[in-house]
C-alpha cells in the first residue's frame, strides 16, 4: 500500500490534487496523508510545509508565524 503512493506519484502527469490522488488510489484522504507523512520522514517525499522554515524573508517582516508573504503559498508534496 505504501509503495503504491510513491508509484502513483511517479506516474502522474502534471500537478495532481490530494483529493484526486486519494480517489485514484481508493484511499481515504486521511490515510493518504498519513502515508505521505511516513514517506516524508523516510526522505522519499518532500513537504513544502516543512521546507518553508528553511526559507528566508529578507526584509518582508518575518513575523512569529514565519514570513507573512509566504503564508499564502499552498502546501505541495514532491518526490525527492
Amino acid at each position: 500500500m505504501l509503495q503504491k503512493v510513491l508509484q502513483a506519484l511517479e506516474e502522474t502527469q502534471g500537478p495532481v490534487s490530494l483529493d484526486e490522488l486519494s480517489r485514484q488510489l481508493e484511499l481515504d484522504v486521511g490515510v493518504l496523508e498519513g502515508m505521505i507523512d511516513f514517506w516524508v520522514r523516510k526522505g522519499k517525499l518532500k513537504d513544502s510545509r516543512l521546507a518553508a522554515c528553511a526559507g528566508g524573508c529578507g526584509n518582508c517582516n518575518p513575523g512569529a508565524q514565519g514570513c507573512t508573504f509566504d503564508r499564502g503559498r499552498p502546501r505541495s508534496i514532491t518526490l525527492t
Binding site: 528553511a54 529578507g58 508573504f69 509566504d70
Partner: peptide, 23 residues
Amino acid sequence: GKSFLPMIVGFGCSVPAIYATRT
C-alpha cells in the same frame, strides 16, 4: 510544474518568492 507556487508569493513580495523556490 510547481513554479507557479512561488510566483503566487511574488504578487506580495519578490524576496520570499525567491526563497520559496527552495521547494
